[in-house]
């Protein structure tokens, strides 16, 4: 079983991102589960959401304390105890940021880190800073367990056609940035992310 914990801020679609990951896994023929950290909703406040993926039915209904994947939607949350709790050397960390993975090595010394400029991708493709489908793509890209077609059907099941199309493009962009699945990425409709000289990313469509 793979356990995923997401941290974001109220209004960022943290819960939606968890649901999309689990939905994509379900579309992929796996067992999955997603749930929010049941708080009192406030825009901007730190929020958590959880997802599990397994080959067997999932009976467990507790929160996730030692995640296999930690997804951080807002890098200003990194110093919270809540975010760092239970992060072991094997936890794979995905961070929405323009910075590079090396910039976070001091904080997460032993971990594999994947950074993704999700907000920039969202602004370039969706015109709004809504990043949940982009994080879905990034997660699927690094974990390599889910077929991109399942991600596409999860997005199509959730959004209306026009919005779904843009989100699939955004998801593909993130997926192909993080994945080595060159066969899919050769034909997938996507934008490209370039690092311009220093540390800054730019997204071109």
């Amino acid at each position: 079983m793979i356990e995923i914990r997401l941290h974001g801020r109220g209004g960022q679609g943290t819960v939606t991102a968890a649901e999309l990951i689990a939905e994509a896994a379900f579309q992929d023929g796996k067992f999955s589960q997603a749930f929010p950290s049941f708080g009192i909703e406030r825009r901007g406040a730190p929020v958590e959401a959880f997802a599990r993926i397994s080959d067997k039915p999932i009976t467990l209904h507790s929160k996730i304390y030692e995640p296999d994947y930690l997804i951080i939607q807002d890098s200003t949350l990194i110093n919270l105890d809540l975010v760092r709790q239970g992060v072991g050397p094997k936890t794979f960390i995905i961070i929405n940021t323009e910075k590079s993975a090396a910039d976070f090595k001091k904080i997460f010394e032993k971990n594999t880190i994947q950074t993704i400029p999700a907000t920039q991708i969202a602004l370039a493709i969706l015109g709004k800073p809504i990043i949940n489908t982009i994080l879905l793509g990034a997660f699927a890209g690094v974990c390599g367990l889910l077929n991109p077609a399942s991600l596409t059907s999860a997005i199509s099941a959730r959004f209306k056609k026009e919005i779904a199309e843009k989100n699939i493009k955004a998801m593909n962009t993130a997926y192909c940035h993080c994945s080595s699945n060159s066969e899919y990425c050769f034909t997938a409709e996507k934008c490209t992310i370039a690092v311009d000289g220093g540390q800054k990313f730019s997204v071109t469509c």
Partner: peptide, 12 residues
């Protein structure tokens, strides 16, 4: 049914 841990949980 347990609130949140069932009502708000997505599962098949």
């Amino acid at each position: 049914m347990d609130g949140f841990s069932l009502t708000h949980t997505f599962e098949p």
